[in-house]
Amino acid sequence: MDGAQRVAFYRQMVRIRTYEETIRANYHADKTPAWDIGAGLVPGEMHLSAGQEPVAVGLCAHLRDDDAITGPHRPHHLALAKGVDMKRMTAEIYGRVDGLGRGRGGHMHLFDPSQHFSCSGIIAEGMPVAVGQALAFSRKGTDAVAVAVAGEGAANQGAFHEALNLASLWKLPVVFVIEDNDWAISVPRPSSTSISSNAPRAAAYGMPGERVEGNDVEAIHDACGRAVSRARAGDGPTLLEIHTVRLWGHFEGDAQAYRGEELAVAESHDPIPAYEAKLRADGLLDDASVAAAKADAQAEVDAAVAFALASPVPDPSTLSDYVFA
């Protein structure tokens, strides 16, 4: 892998982290003194992706605008890496009319048809939808692929198994990506799943399965490359399970008492400082380029937030719009 690509990975991860840190700060800023989930400029549940940036960056480096992603309730890293417009995404999270869904969707329901990006708050239920997108691509004769991303908790849902079977049965260009961050809200993986890796489940559906350890963007990039190429070549679906880390709570406000000592261990596995150290050692980053990456990211995020704040809130008289096509 060439140095320019590695630096680009780093910058993209910093961009996503900066985004999540900014949303996090803004989310909490106006929920004082008594914390109220429905208060403030960014109300509602907020599931942030800090720690999972390597998955989105390693995956999306292989994807084109015409490839599709269905994401889960924790979607920001995937949306940004896929190329969803940060300003319109932010306006949606702020519930404004210039948002992706004109303020109707919110952060768990981001739809950008220009990037074939969508996400859903219902665990595993985006996976069959990706199968249908792949079916459409294949019927239209394009070589576009559809990627379904879900957490490790999703692999125990029926929709996961139904989607894998259908994609393999019809040999569709789908890549199934399981982000294993060890926690389904408060339930640790060993308490939810009968096997230590979901990769062997792929064999039950006649497709390759691979587990990627280490939360390393380059290893993830390699594995995703194999899966995307296989799908694009018409050789059918692949299941990838990527072991990553959830640095923050399930949602903002989650005190995470259930994590105990594991939390400190997780925090010591932040993938971005680790990758930065590696690139510094390889002479690809220095203080100046690191500072520039962070400053560029913050400037873009600040502009997105400014765009959101400048956009009007939806007029209540438009409440019933868009219920029907």
Binding site: S118, P128, L135, F137, R139, E162, L166
Partner: peptide
């Protein structure tokens, strides 16, 4: 769930 979801995905792609 699988094939109704697939119908939805196909419909969103035209």
């Amino acid at each position: 769930t699988g094939f109704i979801g697939a119908g939805i995905g196909a419909a969103t792609e035209g």
